[in-house]
């Protein structure tokens, strides 16, 4: 996998190399219509889908033995954070009387071919995660859920910065994305992660009521 970061960040899925893109690119993924959340449970299930994706990504990546030392320690901790987010969101959805979605089927293609491809893909996931939480924040009605979501959002920003630094990316535009985080619309986030989902349509259906 080479230099896919910019393309994925811009949601230009057609530019994703074959190793990562899988068969998900031409499946008529109608994301333009998925632009809203009707209630907090929908927001939480959307977040849960992304956290499942991240948690499984780090589980596989850390099992692939691509990193070591301090770097491995960081990535293990990040993976543990994502797993914790999955548990937190699942419990919250249940508490609200909703049904948490199950873990989606994922395929990370060539992401674990090398340390660089692992970290580069991780960097995309983390920044997408940051943007996703911020983009959805305005839809959250319950203040306590907002508190928790904001708390997760901040930790995703930590992950994004540290992974960017492990990659040796330039400080501004790599480690940091400016003085302000930017929200990303639901549709754009889902389009960006679609290549990693075996059946993106199924995931969208599961998180949309």
């Amino acid at each position: 996998m080479t230099d896919t970061t910019a393309d994925l960040i811009h949601g230009n899925a057609s530019a994703v190399p074959a190793g990562v893109a899988l068969g998900a690119l031409n499946n008529g993924f109608a994301l333009a219509s998925a632009k809203d959340f009707r209630n907090d449970i929908e927001v939480l299930n959307y977040a849960l889908a992304l956290e499942y994706l991240e948690a499984e990504f780090y589980r596989q990546g850390n099992a692939a033995d691509l990193v070591k030392g301090k770097e491995k320690q960081y990535l293990m901790q990040i993976g543990a954070d994502e797993a914790s987010h999955v548990a937190t969101l699942t419990a919250t959805i249940q508490k609200l009387g909703g049904t948490p979605i199950g873990a989606p089927a994922v395929d990370f293609g060539g992401a674990f071919e090398s340390r660089k491809s692992y970290l580069t893909t991780a960097h995309v996931f983390e920044n997408k995660g940051v943007g996703a939480y911020l983009g959805a924040a305005g839809f959250v009605k319950d203040k306590m859920i907002l508190q928790a979501a904001a708390g997760i959002f901040g930790v995703e920003a930590r992950h994004a910065a540290v992974v960017g630094n492990l990659l040796g990316l330039k400080a501004e535009g790599g480690v940091y994305q400016g003085a302000y985080e930017k929200g990303i619309a639901k549709g754009d986030v889902l389009q960006a992660v679609a290549p990693f989902l075996v059946d993106p349509d199924k995931v969208v259906a599961a998180i949309t009521y």
Partner: peptide, 18 residues
């Protein structure tokens, strides 16, 4: 305002981590 404050808070999180 909440969105604006969050967009700053996220950057502070990046700083803290680095």
């Amino acid at each position: 305002l909440l969105g604006a404050a969050a967009s700053i808070a996220g950057v502070e999180s990046r700083h803290a981590a680095i």
